[in-house]
């Protein structure tokens, strides 16, 4: 077990390195000049040249890259020249907001998704299964940007029940805090929810078709024990999907946060891209990669614990 974890950790180092390198060069190859982004279209050529010089954009990409890697190895994500603050500080400021959104969305997805998946699997080809299938189909194929806008329009503008932007504060009461969260959570949880339902349904059907399960049923085991074996064997696949979905919820956060003006990582990254804040873009991408790698690793470990058999498959 410890060996597997160690192996996975070692494997993630080259992944991170490749991601850092690609992000670094892609941001610089893009035909976009941070000096123009900062000074605007009306700036004169001399003004631009002076700014580039003062910000070190004139150095070769390679030497900028070496500097950046050297900083990273010392745990320094760099300094944002737009915000004039350390990148790690900026990320730390908004990270709790994104975690609230992503983890909250996942909790909803799991709490609703697993029961719905079981319901569909145990009523295979009957109306509950059809209804769940249609809903998941809608969930998977709805663009979340569109969904967010429609929800805001219905519940915020037309009905006036819920706020459509920003994050509430606990100082103004629990309702203020919660009400700001409902629409973003509903939006961000849609795709993970649909995926959890699909995978739960299919892995349970998978288990139900296995010989050991048929044997248990044939022996007339109590329903409680049958259900335990069914879940135990289906869970590793579900947990893996939850890991991947949590990571994709972080990506979905970019759109959800933009629609609901939610101050999180996604909005920070999107703003950094539009203002050509290279170090901040790099920092955000690197950070999201690390989260992705860690979350998947944790998912693997939990899957191993639940059913050690599955460790052999990976």
């Amino acid at each position: 077990m410890a060996k597997t974890i160690f192996k996975r950790l070692v494997h993630s180092i080259p992944i991170l390195f490749v991601v850092v390198t690609i992000t670094f060069f892609v941001t610089r190859i893009l035909p976009s000049d941070p000096a123009v982004a900062i000074l605007g279209a009306e700036a004169t050529p001399e003004d631009l040249a002076q700014l580039r010089e003062s910000m070190g954009f004139n150095e070769s990409y390679f030497s900028q890259y070496i500097d950046y890697i050297a900083g990273l190895l010392q745990g320094n994500l760099g300094h944002s020249y737009v915000h004039k603050q350390p990148v790690s500080q900026l990320i730390a400021n908004v990270l709790p907001n994104t975690i609230t959104l992503a983890v909250g969305g996942m909790i909803i997805a799991v709490l609703l998704g697993i029961p719905l998946g079981i319901l569909a699997a145990t009523h295979r080809n009957k109306s509950p299964d059809h209804a769940v299938s249609v809903l998941t189909l809608c969930g998977v194929s709805t663009p979340i940007f569109w969904l967010g806008l429609i929800l805001a329009l219905i519940f915020g503008v037309k009905l006036g029940w819920l706020p459509v932007m920003g994050r509430g504060s606990l100082e103004q009461g629990a309702w203020d805090y919660l009400s700001h969260m409902i629409l973003p959570l509903a939006t961000i949880s849609t795709v993970p929810l649909a995926n959890v339902v699909i995978i739960t349904r299919s892995s349970i059907i998978d288990v139900v078709n296995k010989d050991f399960y048929k044997t248990l049923v044939a022996y007339g085991m109590p329903k409680r024990i049958i259900r335990k074996h069914m879940l135990k064997n289906a869970l590793p696949a579900i947990i893996n999907v939850i890991g991947i979905q949590l990571a994709s919820a972080l990506t979905g956060a970019i759109l959800t946060e933009t629609v609901f003006n939610w101050p999180g990582m996604g909005k920070l990254a999107a703003d950094a891209i539009t203002s050509r804040d290279y170090t901040l873009v790099q920092g955000c991408v690197l950070f999201m990669t690390i989260v992705y790698v860690i979350v998947n690793l944790i998912a693997d470990i939990i899957a191993c614990c639940v059913n050690p058999q599955s460790a052999k498959d990976t």
Binding site: A152, V157, P163, V164, G166, N261
Partner: peptide
């Protein structure tokens, strides 16, 4: 001053009174 980059969100926030 609330920063709202998205045109849709701006219009929604105004119409909902936020």
């Amino acid at each position: 001053f609330q920063f709202i980059n998205d045109n849709n969100t701006m219009a929604n926030a105004l119409r909902s009174g936020e």
